[in-house]
């Protein structure tokens, strides 16, 4: 899967797993922050997202500084997923 397709898939996953029904794929910027600003996600979303990514891609997101870097943006998640598959 190429990078654009993977990012698009991750955006759909975000919308579905985090109840972001009011957002469309196009409205989520590849490099915008997901937590605090941007999509304004919180710590509950981080837990939920970790479960969703683990389920979809079979990868574990560490609960530490590295995990926080992975969750920085859609691009960062995509890069992590690509590197672990």
């Amino acid at each position: 899967m190429d990078s654009a397709a993977l990012k698009s898939e991750i955006k759909r996953l975000l919308i579905e797993a985090l109840d972001l029904r009011h957002k469309t794929e196009a409205e989520i910027d590849d490099d915008a922050p997901l937590f605090g600003e941007g999509l304004k996600l919180d710590s509950l979303d981080a837990l939920q997202l970790a479960v969703a990514l683990e389920e979809r891609y079979g990868i574990e997101i560490p609960d530490d500084a590295e995990g926080r870097r992975v969750f920085a943006s859609v691009s960062a998640i995509a890069a992590y997923v690509a590197s672990r598959r």
Binding site: L18, D19, L44, D45, L47, Q48, V51, E54, E55
Partner: peptide, 13 residues
């Protein structure tokens, strides 16, 4: 169905 580790954390509260 999917295991305890897959329980939805954001749903529970």
């Amino acid at each position: 169905d999917r295991g305890v580790r897959r329980a939805n954390p954001a749903e529970f509260p």
